[in-house]
């Protein structure tokens, strides 16, 4: 990478204090990314979502965050105030969550929600907003953009809702999209269409993408680079084409524990949970 990195996270720790003691959810995570497609893969509780949310400053209130630095395009996110974060969120970093049912406001039309992004960040006037919204809806694959503009979220299917969400996030031409399990609420056949749409938009607009998922196959297909997280640590970083050659035993175990269409096995390999994988921390980073 010759350009200045888009995101730089160094020595990030996130912990929670609960009734039963302190929980270290993210431990010493560091990575840099440019305008590329970065996948973060891990099982539930691995800290993958927290790491990404930290970039937008939308962690739960009881989270304790420590880091050497978190930088987004030259801006120190870790020391930024709430006002500065608001300018970043939505304007320069867009976020796509798991279920459009919950991330779209059920009382507003698609048009209202898309144009609102424009007015919040004062990007342009209403006519411009509307024109842009229609453009984007067409770009994400709606042939009847005018009808979609006038509809409410409940009138859209899950896949349509998620595509509308993508369009909404693109209204302000952000530099980075964070997609947290964007397709796990969708049916398998719809999943690919949504991911293809997202992928096309990210490439065309030369944006960065952070794709968080538990699905190794999916991330391998849609990302350039993959971070594997386990218990709050990045255990391995690799380029997607090299996934088959992963060295870390945890990554290997993840790959081997999936039932696969192209290979018949009698028993699936399981994880040896006693192994001390975290000692391999940041290997290959």
């Amino acid at each position: 990478m010759t350009e200045q990195p888009l995101v730089e996270i160094s020595a990030l720790d996130i912990s929670f204090t609960t009734k039963s003691g302190r929980v270290d959810a993210v431990r010493g995570v560091s990575f840099t990314m440019g305008r590329e497609r970065l996948g973060i893969v891990g099982e539930s509780g691995s800290g993958k979502s927290l790491t990404a949310r930290c970039l937008l400053g939308i962690l739960p209130a009881n989270a304790e965050v420590r880091s050497r630095h978190i930088v987004f395009d030259g801006i120190r996110v870790d020391t930024a105030g709430e006002a500065e974060m608001r300018r970043l969120r939505g304007r320069r970093i867009g976020m796509i969550l798991q279920d459009p049912k919950y991330s779209l406001n059920p009382l507003l039309t698609v048009s209202q929600q898309l144009c609102e992004m424009f007015s919040i960040h004062r990007v342009g006037n209403r006519a411009e907003a509307r024109a842009k919204a229609i453009d984007l809806l067409r770009a994400v694959g709606f042939t009847d953009a005018d009808r979609v503009m006038a509809s409410y979220p409940h009138e859209l299917s899950g896949g349509m809702g998620q595509r509308a969400m993508i369009a909404m996030m693109l209204m302000t031409d952000p530099d980075l999209i964070v997609a947290d399990e964007p397709t796990s609420a969708l049916d398998v056949t719809v999943k690919l269409k949504v991911l293809d749409t997202m992928d096309r938009m990210v490439r065309e607009r030369r944006m960065g993408l952070v794709l968080i998922s538990h699905d190794l196959n999916l991330v391998a297909a849609y990302c350039d680079r993959i971070l594997i997280m386990y218990r709050g640590r990045v255990v391995e970083t690799l380029n997607s084409p090299d996934l088959a050659a992963a060295r870390h035993p945890y990554t290997r175990a993840l790959v081997d524990s999936l039932p696969r269409l192209d290979r018949q096995v009698d028993r699936l390999k399981t994880l040896d949970r006693g192994a001390d994988w975290t000692r391999w921390e940041n290997a290959g980073a």
């Binding site: 056949t189 690919l192 190794l216 196959n217 991330v219 297909a221 084409p241 269409l261």
Partner: peptide, 18 residues
Amino acid sequence: YSKELMASARVGLPALEV
């Protein structure tokens, strides 16, 4: 429809060729 399902299920498989 089965073909569509099949295509979705095969995403990422080439990358996993060992």
